[in-house]
């Protein structure tokens, strides 16, 4: 029972992280019909930006955890919002008319460049970096299961973020513009919506979410690695695809679904929990074979 609770806790944390990444993918696909494959590396970059901020704060003499945490999160999300907009402006928008595989390739390579920059230029970047524990370490024991306050805080924060995004999309003018562009670019333009502004803001928002996920990742595992973004990106993309690219609810569902698959894999194959990724990706491939455009698929139509 306690083991189950532990797994559930794990699963929810990971699911939320994956959902945040998947939301980025689905937003970008919604507004531009594009897969931005550097997104996973933006997650890592966000974590490193947070780490660098922390190092700076320590040097500046900021000792207390609360301002550290707040500033780290702000710095990470803001810097990645900017990076995301830049990536959109430089890599994605110029390739708007090109065959979709070109954008996939360009962003894959862009992600590689980003990853390599972290590895080469961040001091000690090629080694895993310790991420500071900025959240309170209180915990409650319930039998063999330990409920940690930091995990609860992260889950709550992540949940608030997802809900917040949902509200932004459904209640604000920006959200309306984003949905309009996602629905039909041409009509949106004729209605006077500034297409480029909306696209760049969408990239900024999606990348800010990624940064948050990166900081979460660092706080949860207490370490970050320049290469972790790659796997996270593929997982986030898989999650978004499973839920149906372009669907908000689908991305969240997909994130939790993938986390669930990993947990299931770890439980079902106790002799090697490392096989959980093999298991999860195999299921993804099988699901995509069954439903090529996701469980809540995108409707592909072709005018003949």
């Amino acid at each position: 029972m306690d083991l189950l609770a532990q797994y559930v806790m794990n699963g929810v944390m990971l699911g939320l992280m994956y959902a945040l990444v998947a939301l980025g993918f689905t937003l970008f696909f919604g507004v531009l019909d594009v897969v931005q494959f550097a997104h996973g590396d933006v997650v890592t970059a966000g974590a490193f930006a947070g780490l660098a901020t922390y190092a700076g704060l320590v040097l500046a003499g900021v000792e207390s955890a609360v301002p550290q945490l707040v500033l780290v999160v702000i710095a990470a999300t803001l810097s990645m919002a900017v990076l995301g907009a830049v990536l959109g402006r430089v890599l994605v928008l110029p390739l708007k008319g090109a065959p979709p595989l070109n954008v996939l390739l360009a962003t894959l390579m862009g992600g590689t460049a980003l990853r390599e920059c972290i590895r080469l230029f961040y001091p000690g970047g090629s080694q895993p970096q310790r991420f500071p524990a900025l959240l309170p370490s209180a915990s409650w024991s319930m039998g063999h299961f330990t409920l940690r306050l930091d995990n609860v805080l992260m889950i709550v924060a992540g949940g608030v973020l997802v809900l917040g995004l949902s509200l932004v999309l459904r209640r604000t003018r920006l959200g309306l513009e984003i949905r309009a562009v996602a629905q039909d670019e041409e009509t949106a333009r004729t209605m006077g919506i500034d297409f480029r502004r909306v696209v760049l803001l969408t990239f900024a928002i999606g990348s800010a979410l990624a940064a948050f996920a990166g900081v979460m990742h660092g706080l949860y595992y207490n370490e970050i690695n320049f290469g972790s973004g790659l796997l996270l990106g593929v997982i986030g993309f898989s999650a978004a695809v499973l839920g149906g690219l372009g669907s908000f609810g689908g991305a969240v569902l997909g994130g939790f679904l993938f986390a669930g698959l990993q947990t299931l894999g770890a439980v079902a194959l106790p002799f090697a929990s490392a096989y959980k990724d093999v298991f999860a990706f195999t299921v993804v491939i099988l699901l995509m074979t069954w439903k090529p455009t996701g469980l809540i698929g995108e409707q592909l139509g072709e005018r003949v």
Partner: peptide, 30 residues
């Protein structure tokens, strides 16, 4: 991978090969 690849297009097909590459390597290491 043939069946999944025949059923999917574009970036979905790309994802299948990416996922396969990742799971293959993980499988070998474990």
């Amino acid at each position: 991978l043939l069946l999944p690849l025949l059923r999917t297009r574009g970036h979905y097909a790309a994802l299948i090969t990416i996922a396969f590459g990742l799971l293959f390597r993980t499988f070998l290491e474990v």
